[in-house]
Amino acid sequence: MAHLMIWALVLAVFWLLLSGFFKTLLLSFGLISVVLVVFLIRRMDTTDNQPQKLPLSFSFFRYVIWLLGQIALSSLEVTKLVWGSSKKLSPAIAKLPVANTPEKTRVLYANSITLTPGTLSVDIDEEHVTVHALDAQSIKSLEAGEMATKVSSVTGAKN
């Protein structure tokens, strides 16, 4: 129940920020939308038994900042490859094990892999995530597992 209240609060703030009007009519529209969405969330929870909690924690924001740094670094790498000669290109494909991580963490991990330029998660199933990389080096650094440990420190503990 508590997470529904948090959802309602977040959605109300979202509505107010997007509209920026404080007239009665528009506020009541906002109220109706928030109630409708919270009702839908509750229905979805009872259907699939997976309450959707918002990842609002300090470690998540720290992870986002770290990820932005990684994006900047690997963008520079890819930029060098684009403007340099294309002979140096060594695309590689590999399977990384994600068997013992929970589903939510897996999704965040695959999305982070794709978001950093130079690596791309091609396929994901129960045991492996298939990663295509522009440079064989970045596969190695993924296998070293820095991103994996950071991701599981964000969500892994409580789910």
């Binding site: 490859l81 684009v82 403007w83 330029p117 130079g118 791309l120």
Partner: peptide, 29 residues
């Protein structure tokens, strides 16, 4: 500049999967 990098990569890279990498430069950074 990074947008241009991405689109140049889209023309220059040899196969589809590498081109996705080039496009993801424009999408993220």
């Amino acid at each position: 500049f990074f947008s241009f990098t991405g689109v140049i990569g889209l023309f220059k890279f040899p196969d589809f999967f590498t081109r996705v990498h080039a496009a993801s430069v424009t999408d993220s950074i």
